[in-house]
Design a protein around this nucleic acid. Sequence first.
RNA 1: GGUGCCAUAGCUCAGUUGGUAGAGCAACGGACUGAAAAUCCGUGUGUCCCUAGUUCGAUUCUUGGUGGCACCA
Length: 303
Amino acid sequence: MNKKLPHTLIILLGPTCVGKTSLSIRIARLFETEIISCDSRQLFREMAIGTAVPDKVLLENIPHHFIQTHSIFDIYNAAKFEAEVLDKLRHMFEIHDFVVMTGGSMLYIDAVCKGIDDLPDIEPELRTALSERMQKEGIEQLRAELKLLDPAYYREVDLRNPVRILHALEICYTTGKSFSSQRSKTVKKRNFRIIKIGLNLDRRELYDRINRRVDEMMIAGLEQEAKNLYPHRHLSTLNTVGYRELFDYFDGHCSKAEAVEKIKSNTRKYARKQLTWFRKDTDIQWFHPNQEEEIVQLISNYG
RNA sequence: GGUGCCAUAGCUCAGUUGGUAGAGCAACGGACUGAAAAUCCGUGUGUCCCUAGUUCGAUUCUUGGUGGCACCA
């Protein structure tokens, strides 16, 4: 391959359970390259079964990055992911023209492709204090505070969404400046080419696959995995489909069968939410997961 | 075979003293730059089983069907 051509990041994305993993491995093998996982939950080594981490055999065949590399006890977010992936890509592009990134974490994909604003980390104490105030004083009080500190953001933010209010206040208090003044809203330049390949299935088939995979996770021991994590259930990372429903069951709020049904239902909702996000991204070229030849052809055209 | 009950959204069901209907679940859509598998917002999608009557008007009342369930034979 011609080394003078720009390096290319091939992003395989799509809703959960659509078949991204197996296709990404075949494509990575064909182009003799490696895979970056873009999955905000497979990052954590404590959550293997519930996040559908690929088989060891598959992982050993093709080098994977960002799978089970972090701990649920670490603070992690899309900005850290952006920085770590860009750093990794620098090294990978020294030996590969193509790198495959695969996953369905929408914000994380955007962070890698478009960048994310440079904001300071939030002290855990501040986060806790503001959350407690939200509980005690109610959202109205914090809204009023945001109106004083950052009237511009107050005007455009979804005032009913507590997480948005809290985060804006966190940034205001940490930096001493308004949140809106630090939002660049600009797309960062990348020195590599990006091809976004979207995978989608007929809705019925996607749901069948999701339902089946949840059953398989239960057989594989998801309940025990969740039980081991139960003591840490208040970590935000464990506020994840597949775990929180089982925590409810452990707490006696529902039967095991109801928890499993709830996992399926919430996974289907998650898939829909992913599709809503991807739908507005006009850079994505859509395929059926079995259109492997067409996808390979498309990538080859860029080489 | 006889008698009784039921038939309304994808499912379970409510309701209309006659003015074409609504809950839960499911489904569907949207927002979203540092918790993102998170968080937040929105949408009822219908030959009210069919037929013939009564009526200005029938999903509702009446006749006759069809299907289901129960009981009696």
